[in-house]
Design a protein around this nucleic acid. Sequence first.
DNA 1: AATCCTGCAACTAGTAATCC
DNA 2: GGATTACTAGTTGCAGGATT
Length: 428
Amino acid sequence: MRRGEIYYFRRVVPSSHRSLLGKREILISLRTRAVGEALILSAPLIDKYDRLFRGDASSELAIEAQDRVHIASRRIGIKYKPLDVRRDAPLEDNLAEIAPRVAAFAGFQKLPLAELQAIAGDIPFRLPFSQALERYQELSRDKWLNLSQRERDKKWRPFEAAVSHFLRFYPNADALSIGRKDAYRYRHHLIDEIVAGSIKADTANKKLMRLRMILEKVFEVDYPENQNPFRGVRIKDDAGKRARPPFSEVEIDAIQKLLRTSSANDQLKAIIKIGMFTGATCKEICLLEEADIVLDGDIPHIKIQPNDQRHKVKSGGARHREIPLVGEALEAMRQFPAGFPRYRRDNGGEVVSAAANKLMAVVTDKTFYSFRHRIADLLRNSGAQDSMKDAIMGHTTRGMGMHYGAGFTLEKKREALETAFRNIESGL
DNA sequence: AATCCTGCAACTAGTAATCC
DNA sequence: GGATTACTAGTTGCAGGATT
């Protein structure tokens, strides 16, 4: 339509939406005097309001409405709260709900619709899941402040994935109105997927956990009166068995043979050998810097500690350790006294894991982590104390005095490892 | 002591980039 | 132009600490 020289977009609001939008018609200036331009500018608006009135964008609409009453509330100086009056509630509760509203209303002669809605509590609170997620990220800023891009992605993607998985099941779900029933219905759906074999119980539980974490935090801060519908919702997981079993000595021999003939790059081969004889994880080995590698002196060893590449090591404290280099690990490390530039970067550990596992797939279906389990088993079988095993692996020892001293000396650790490897040769 | 909760890292599959 | 290697996104396992 044209008003004077300027064209306007105009649209009647269906009565069903008048309360939410707070007006009877939409009138927006297109800021142009040209018909052609006006037509082009109006197209997205037509589309937008079509969708709104058809209902498939109702959450957007609701958010707008919510913002509007909140602003109106502030204008007239009240704190907005949706009206909560129920037939079965005690009378005095209902009166208490209404009385302050009447008082507020009485103070004014004539009020615009938004202000009336604000006082009447006409608009329910709404929080689409996507917004809850944003809010959660905002509230947890501290968790990603000093992460690399990759680490940041790895942290947040699962949350996004959890939300979008949930939304596929419950399109347009509103975080404030879903209840325990909905949570359990979703749980049921997850169990179906587990039965179908598309995901593991552990994965399903993590999806539930992430939804729970999001709502827990957001509710705690913004909606303290709301109960988290996911609290305590989980799926029994009896997977139990060891999924990454240790390598057998037969497999170790086969891998050794493979390494001698393989055309894989030397850095990768060296990393595999070091993993094989130290039980260090591939990320730990990849990120070693020159200063972390000690080849002169009585006991050559590597230090797993924070450095430029590595801001922190998993679980901090106990994981920081020195591991003596024995057997072929020492030769391999001598080849690369300054570490492995090829893999010393964001993601390097994952690349090594993928490459090494692919290489070893020829002779085994086990993976890099099985080196670690093998070392642990060898140490145990050779009679090493648990605390020694933990010191070499970088585990915390339960109940052991983490407060005392620096733990085992390098010499003791080397003895333990050598004993363990000698045991294999003698066929124990 | 067992189980739950959580963070971190390994692993996989699919795809993209690079090499030869 | 096919093979190899790396990257990315997503899943799963491991371990520590909290809770029951």
